[in-house]
Design a protein around this nucleic acid. Structure first.
Lengths: 232, 232
DNA sequence: CGACCATTTGATATGGATCAAGCGATGTGG
DNA sequence: CCACATCGCTTGATCCATATCAAATGGTCG
């Protein structure tokens, strides 16, 4: 098993190893915001299954996935885990209204993450209205994703899984083939289902020719309109 | 049954009757924001079960409950209704990142609502940083409520109902007695349960002496720690 | 008093959880 | 290079919480 080897700073100055910030939605950034982050930030490398920040740490950084993938989650008092979101290359996470993270963030695979000090960023947003607007737009996107999840969680297992696949497919445009970086357990904890139900539902979708599963982590959408119909 | 009688303007200038803006969380306002709303706004009266704004209308107004209570909701394609939030006197709703509402808003009881043009408000926020900060804080609160709901919706019926009661109790401090303005159906649609399950769960909580139900709309919290324990 | 609507209560059905076992891929040590 | 352990995933059998269907009760208003 892979554990917490030393983080590897890839470029620019090195931020402290204990990091903060918080994410719950994925967003593709606009031009200027993106450029700014690259100018101000440092790229860090993490092995897979490594914590990037923990719940209740103060949210001093904003993050952008350069390569690999990340999940944010929360452990409930009864020990169950609720996965809040998945972040793929290009996605920004750690956006947080308050001072403290309400989720933890971990790499799913080996990943490179661009890390930017929130304070520097906020200062910039104060001077540059377009940056402020972009930040606001990102938060707005997060909120919308959140709303979508609330609607998802009152639906059936099939609907949840279909929604999940369509959501993932949106992020990898120009193809019906999706490579899922996350495990069935991750998906289950994201959708509020068990691993068995996720597995069975995927099998059922394959049987009904809505999808194909060349391997367990690769999904081909064969019939999007059928999936959309389930999606509600 | 009460239907759409003419709205009654109570004070100040009258905004158009077709209104917009969108709400999904409740918030008690801070001083200056509150004062500003009262200075700039008009108070409207609505009979109970009356639409204040509809989904997909443009979000031109921000609202504050003066008296009575309001629910925001969405009708799903399968006809089910998801209630997004309940708003009691003092709560602000219609806060919306985007241009269009993603929910509808209706009165639950007869209600007076303070209505303020969003544009005037935004202009003010541009000049007054403290107003901007307050608006931001409200959005932040909304987001946190949303996150709480996501966690709620993966829990059991008992946990959901207990959470709901505690949430309502927080809004009417200094007492363990809650007067619920909303029907069992409203509660069920808020918690993603059926009306029967809500009713049975309340009965069970009463049987276990966690609450008392002097009337169906009045709940007395008898054992908060028991409820908190269920809450997780 | 009677009609209507909200709520509760009862009986049964069912989707997804839980418990349990098998299977395939991947990696390790011999 | 193969045998075996491990891990992630699938599949099967059963159970249980909540939904669904149905009826009774209670409260409100004309």
């Amino acid at each position: 098993m892979l554990t917490q080897t030393a983080y590897h700073v890839v470029s620019h100055s090195a931020p402290p190893v204990s990091h903060l910030g918080r994410g719950f939605g994925a967003s593709t950034e606009a031009a200027s915001l993106d450029q700014t982050m690259h100018l101000m930030g440092a790229t860090m490398s993490y092995p897979r299954n490594t914590e990037i920040f923990g719940e209740n740490e103060s949210a001093d950084y904003i993050y952008k996935v350069v390569s690999g993938s990340v999940r944010t989650y929360k452990i409930l008092s009864d020990g169950r885990r609720q996965v809040a979101g998945f972040y793929l290359p290009g996605d920004i996470f750690g956006l947080q209204f308050g001072d403290e993270h309400s989720f933890s963030a971990e790499t799913i695979t080996d990943a490179k993450v661009l890390v930017v000090r929130r304070r520097a960023f906020d200062a910039l947003a104060g001077r540059d209205a377009s940056i402020a607007r972009e930040l606001f737009a990102l938060s707005s996107k997060e909120l919308r994703r959140m709303q979508k999840r609330v609607l998802l969680l009152i639906k059936s297992a099939q609907e949840r899984v279909a929604s999940f696949l369509l959501e993932m497919a949106e992020r990898v445009p120009a193809s019906n083939a999706i490579e899922l970086p996350m495990s069935r357990q991750d998906i289950a904890d994201y959708l509020g289902l068990t691993i068995e139900t996720v597995s069975r539902t995927l099998t059922a979708l394959e049987t009904s020719a809505a999808i194909a599963l060349p391997t367990s982590r690769r999904v081909v959408l064969r019939n999007r309109s059928a999936l959309n119909r389930m999606n509600g």
